[in-house]
Design a protein around this nucleic acid. Structure first.
Lengths: 203, 203
DNA sequence: CCATAATATGACCAGTTGGTCACATGACCA
DNA sequence: TGGTCATGTGACCAACTGGTCATATTATGG
């Protein structure tokens, strides 16, 4: 966790630092990210940095918290789906909302995704926790769907959760990367046509 | 390309260096990979290294070549599918064979995947080329399938290629996550014993 | 106004990086 | 044998790394 000193900072300064960190991790990943660049970019001194955070890992943890916080808020602000949606409709809503969020916060998402996807395995418990939480939520969803008769009882819950998880990631990443390359981010949720047909099932 | 000096090297020494490079990139990604560690690991001097390769990028290019070469050979050695397979059967065969290859060469695949997936965009043409080749191969496949009447003429080729590409990744990832449980994929494809990020690449 | 506590600073550290270069070694040929 | 040329070597370079710490600045409240 960031130290108290950081939390005492005025919002504006905190945002400045956070944004600099996001840029750095998004561009260089964890190993190659440079604290010197972060402090230079955000205009604070190195000493201050280490008064705000324990170490490099600590800044990244702060980004994880930021993501969780902002994403949760985003999902709350979005009108939640009607109660009558079945699991497939609900999953579709989740992906769509997730994509909207990614479109609105490409750098933050990329920073996290980069580190988690390619270096995450080396950083132990923290990443495992995030993954487990996601997986548990999906399994829960599937279990409910089974009880409602929307999914056949014979379906293996874990496998289905993996498919849903991976599917969501692939779509998100492919869109995110495309957007990063083209640098054309309209805040809207309009997706390229070929990306929105993806809820098909294939042997 | 590696310099001629490298190609003149005895096979054994070349392999030693290549393997050291694979380990390094797999573990640290491109930015954080250390040439010092590579030369230490492979027991050559720094000066020699720079007589073999232009620079860091050059070693990585060599790994890309190695992957392409080995994967092509692997697919050739595998019994190719019967001529009577339709596009779906063929696609399934491709994925299955790709997974086998990944299981057999986890480090190499991981080294490439890591750099390409998370840092590739910064290295310009090279990355774009690989992706384009994959996509073109898929589009070609689909076009042929259309001519054979296996796919409706109205299907957009690019869209379908994206779906196939994404599906390949989904399956790879989901299998990988289950890797610990030694589940067997239909067709007797042994599961990888450790986690790594896979890239489904069509030769 | 001063004392104390909180915060800010950048010089400094040992260690690393990718890359160079003058030189040593050794293989081949005359 | 001596000469030539490809190959091997590691000390060396400037630039950077994550992290520390003594000191300077500011805020607080009595």
């Amino acid at each position: 966790m960031p130290k108290q000193t950081f939390l005492n900072l005025p919002e504006e300064k905190r945002m400045l630092i956070t944004r600099a960190a996001i840029d750095e991790f998004a561009e260089y990943g964890f190993e190659a990210a440079s604290i010197n660049r972060i402090v230079a970019e955000s205009g604070i001194s190195k000493g201050s940095f280490y008064q705000y955070f324990e170490d490099k890992m600590d800044v990244f943890r702060h980004l994880l918290d930021t993501l969780a916080e902002e994403k949760t808020q985003f999902f709350k602000d979005c009108h939640p789906p009607g109660k009558d949606l079945n699991i497939f409709g609900y999953f579709r809503w989740m992906i769509k909302t997730g994509l909207k969020f990614n479109s609105a916060n490409p750098k933050l998402v990329k920073a996290i995704a980069r580190v988690m996807l390619s270096e995450g395995y080396y950083y132990g418990q923290m990443f495992a926790d995030v993954r487990k939480r996601t997986m548990d939520a999906l399994i829960d969803l599937i279990r409910t769907a089974k009880q409602n008769g929307e999914i056949d009882a014979s379906v293996d819950e874990k496998t289905a959760a993996h498919v849903m998880d991976a599917w969501g990631n692939v779509i998100s990443n492919s869109i995110l990367d495309e957007g990063m390359q083209k640098r054309t981010w309209s805040g809207g949720c309009d997706l390229p046509k070929h990306k929105s047909i993806l809820m098909t099932c294939c042997p």
